[in-house]
């Protein structure tokens, strides 16, 4: 049987663009393991909660994505979201 798929909300932090995840209670975290995960049927409500609040909203373009749990780890379903969570798969070219 495949792992159960959960929903969570992600966006990019307004002031610096950093990838962040909605942790509930108006809080956003850069650590995906601290994201609030819900079952599929509760996804829309989670997104609405993440989008709420007075401007400026701390995250740009809150979006619902899918993930599975692997022990303590939260693993996004799509490669794109895994790269967003873990950073580029190649080295930086800086000094």
């Amino acid at each position: 049987m495949s792992d159960p798929v959960f929903k969570l909300v992600t966006g990019n932090r307004l002031r610096d663009g950093k990838v962040v995840y909605f942790a509930g209670a108006d809080a956003w975290t850069p650590t995906i393991a601290k994201a609030r995960l819900v079952e599929e049927r509760d996804g829309a409500a989670l997104l609405a909660e993440a989008q709420a609040g007075p401007p400026p909203h701390p995250a740009v373009a809150p979006t619902l994505i899918e993930a599975t749990r692997d022990g303590e780890r939260v693993v996004p379903v799509t490669l794109r979201e895994r790269i967003r969570a873990g950073g580029p798969t190649i080295a930086y070219s800086g000094d």
Partner: peptide, 17 residues
């Protein structure tokens, strides 16, 4: 704001602006 930042070359991508 999106069109204003884009007019100055600022995009929002996967990890940052």
């Amino acid at each position: 704001f999106r069109s204003l930042r884009l007019m100055n070359g600022l995009y929002l991508q996967l990890h940052a602006y």
